[in-house]
Design a protein around this nucleic acid. Structure first.
Length: 466
RNA sequence: GUCCCCAUCGUCUAGUGGCCUAGGACAUCGCCCUUUCACGGCGAAAACAGGGGUUCGAGUCCCCUUGGGGACGCCA
């Protein structure tokens, strides 16, 4: 039997880290087993579902490279099928109409809460079926009263619920629309899903779904409930955590490969290994090394992973991201050194593409102002001599090679009898605006003669005025 | 309140009864490398929530306590 997994988001928001991780696990499991990965959009709640959200989820998955073999299916387009199943349930006595008002239900819950009981429907309409069947009503699933439901969760082990804990849940609203638990069951069965991998907030739904499945004569799939992901602060993911959407990480300059790597290590491990290519993940991923407890997302670790990828991926691949970023920033990146050279010079010095772009825009644009601390330390009067000498020597340099540039720096050091940093640091500030950059000869090389002279003149002017 | 789930360094985790004096990674701190910043190398500090069992032996199995999370919707 081929493995079939699914990712079933509801389009009521963006694809956040938790959703992305769940999608990744489902995708990996399908790919590892040469199975199929199905995408299903659970949009039965028409009030809250939006097309923007659907698109955002699709975009997020595309960015991460989580491709699906079937779908996207939309539950909103399968209404006839759900109605058919509900009718079937009704006819077989597995469901009944309930005419209770929402007010009665609320009072009932309130009362049960006061008596410190678990709020449950009291089967009023099952025990006292009203005569008038044309009045507004919902349809409830008749849950078994006795016995228990047991399933073997692939990550949690055996989980058992007593049927007395479950109540007769609504499967069709008074407006005739089906509800979540019913749709999930019908879809998973129709789509022949063999493994349901989802967040552990669904553990409580599982016994209800299994009961409906049995009433319908279907075999339950295998379940695997993965723990949730918490924010950096250990709290539940929410809007407060800056990056709610995985796409935000794209905008912040992270590579999809790094994001995937970071997500897969949240709740899954393979010994001590930290870095996994997509192919390795697929090869190694199984359900039996998923952890059972929630994990905090750690931005610093993501930064490190991202840098590992920046360091090792082909330069031209990184270049394409860098050019996109420059484009968005309005930087004319064709007017300066080649981006490949920029990437090679900076890939070990930054965590993200965005940071790389910010640190290297000075090679393409005149810098607006110097970093206060750096200028205060290095653009002071004593550097006038060396800097002026540097400027004049460079001005007469015809072959702008790294070797020649190095020699010029060495010569200036000798002329004033000072150490390398004494001349290199002021030049760094003059060229890049702050005191960190690649080796000074490489920095000069990248900057080019024309821009370098301009920068040095500007810096000399700055020192004289200050 | 009821039910369900969870519990190893600050964080992600290894650990499937003896290999654990508890390993790795991020972050932190120190040293080395060095033309600044990084990268890299070396090193330090840092955890089995508590209590009972079971066992020759428990981080690992069982129970209780504590703590955390989730569910209890005509949301998904």
């Amino acid at each position: 039997m081929t493995v079939r997994t699914r990712f079933a988001p509801s389009p009521t928001g963006y694809l956040h880290l938790g959703g992305a991780r769940t999608a990744l696990f489902s995708w990996l499991y399908a790919r590892h087993n040469n199975g199929k990965f199905v995408l299903r959009v659970e949009d039965t709640d028409l009030e809250r579902s939006t097309e923007e959200s659907t698109q955002a989820i699709l975009d997020g998955m595309q960015w991460l490279g989580l491709d699906y073999d079937e779908g996207p299916f939309f539950q909103s387009q399968r209404m006839d099928r759900y109605k058919e199943v509900i009718q079937q349930l009704l006819e077989k006595g597995h469901a009944y109409k309930c005419y209770c008002s929402q007010e009665r239900l609320e009072n009932l819950r309130e009362e049960q809460r006061i008596r410190k009981h678990k709020p449950r429907y009291d089967k009023h309409c099952f025990e006292n079926p009203p005569k008038d069947s044309s009045a507004p009503h919902v349809i409830r699933f008749l849950n078994p009263e006795e016995g228990e439901v047991t399933f073997e969760d692939q990550v949690r082990g055996v989980i058992t619920f007593k049927n007395t804990e479950l109540d007769d849940l609504i499967i069709q609203r008074s407006d005739g629309s089906p509800t979540y638990n019913l749709c999930v069951v019908v879809d998973d069965a129709d789509m022949q899903i063999t493994h349901v991998i989802r967040g552990d907030d669904h553990i409580n739904n599982t016994p209800r779904q299994i009961n409906i499945l049995h009433a319908l004569g279907f075999e339950p799939p295998v379940y695997a409930h993965v723990p949730m992901i918490l924010g950096d602060d250990g709290k539940r993911l929410s809007k407060r955590h800056g990056a709610v959407s995985v796409i935000q990480y794209h905008e912040d300059g992270y590579l999809p490969e790094a994001m995937l790597n970071c997500l897969v290590r949240l709740g899954w491990s393979h010994g001590d290994q930290e870095l996994f290519s997509k192919e390795e993940m697929i090869k190694l991923f199984t359900l039996d090394h998923i952890s059972q407890s929630a994990a905090c997302f750690n931005t610093e670790k993501l930064n490190w992973i991202n840098q590992q990828y920046l360091k090792t991926m082909p330069a031209d691949y990184i270049t394409s991201y860098l050019s996109d970023t420059f484009h968005e920033m309005g930087v004319d990146y064709l007017n300066g050194p080649s981006l490949i050279d920029i990437v090679e010079a900076y890939r070990e010095r930054v965590d993200t593409i965005k940071e790389m772009a910010e640190k290297t825009r000075c090679y393409f644009q005149t810098i607006e102002h110097y970093d206060d601390k750096a200028a205060g330390k290095f653009l002071k009067e004593p550097v006038l001599g060396p800097l002026t000498s540097m400027r004049d020597r460079l001005d007469s340099l015809t072959d702008w090679s790294k070797e020649n540039l190095h020699q010029v720096v060495v010569d200036v050091c000798a002329e004033f009898d000072i150490k390398m940093p004494k001349v290199a640091q002021p030049i760094r500030v003059a060229l890049t605006g702050n005191s960190n950059s690649p080796s000074i000869d490489l920095t000069l090389k990248l900057m080019g003669k024309e821009r370098t002279i301009k920068c040095l003149d500007h810096a000399l002017e700055f020192v004289r005025i200050a």
